[in-house]
Simulated scan of single mutants.
Amino acid sequence: MAAAATAYLDADENLEAIIARIDHKSRKIETLLKQSKPVEALKTVLEGSPLKTRDERCKSANWIVVHRALMAIRDVHGMFSSLDPEYYDILMK
């Protein structure tokens, strides 16, 4: 349990770095969306998601980017069939 608590603390200590990564991913997915690659954009945004942070600002910023990618996908069934199982877990978290 101490290791899990440490993981949360480590993530929370780097809040500005997490926000900077989310901003970078946001710009990257906008480029992918302009290239009509919404599934690739979703995969990009899910990779390295800040799952262990408890900071609401980080969670909210990440959700905005995930939501942007999800809303660009027209074929949801096709999207789910193209995702690797690891992405399902990240998406549900």
Rank of each mutant, 00 (worst) to 15 (best):
M1P: 10
M1S: 12
M1N: 10
A2P: 06
A7E: 13
A7D: 09
D10T: 14
A11R: 03
A11P: 00
D12T: 03
E13A: 12
N14V: 06
L15Y: 07
E16M: 04
A17V: 08
A17M: 02
I18H: 08
K25D: 12
I29V: 14
I29A: 03
I29W: 12
E30C: 07
E30R: 14
E30W: 12
L32A: 03
L32E: 05
L33S: 03
P38N: 05
P38W: 02
P38S: 05
E40I: 08
E40G: 07
A41T: 01
A41Y: 03
L42C: 03
K43R: 09
K43L: 04
V45Y: 00
P50M: 11
L51V: 04
K52V: 11
R54L: 07
D55L: 08
E56R: 09
E56A: 13
E56I: 08
R57E: 15
C58V: 15
S60D: 13
N62C: 07
N62H: 10
N62T: 04
H67M: 13
H67P: 00
H67W: 14
R68H: 13
A69I: 04
A69P: 03
M71W: 07
A72I: 03
A72V: 03
I73K: 01
I73G: 06
R74H: 12
R74K: 15
V76E: 14
M79W: 01
L83I: 01
Y88D: 06
Y88E: 07
D89P: 07
L91C: 04
M92Y: 15
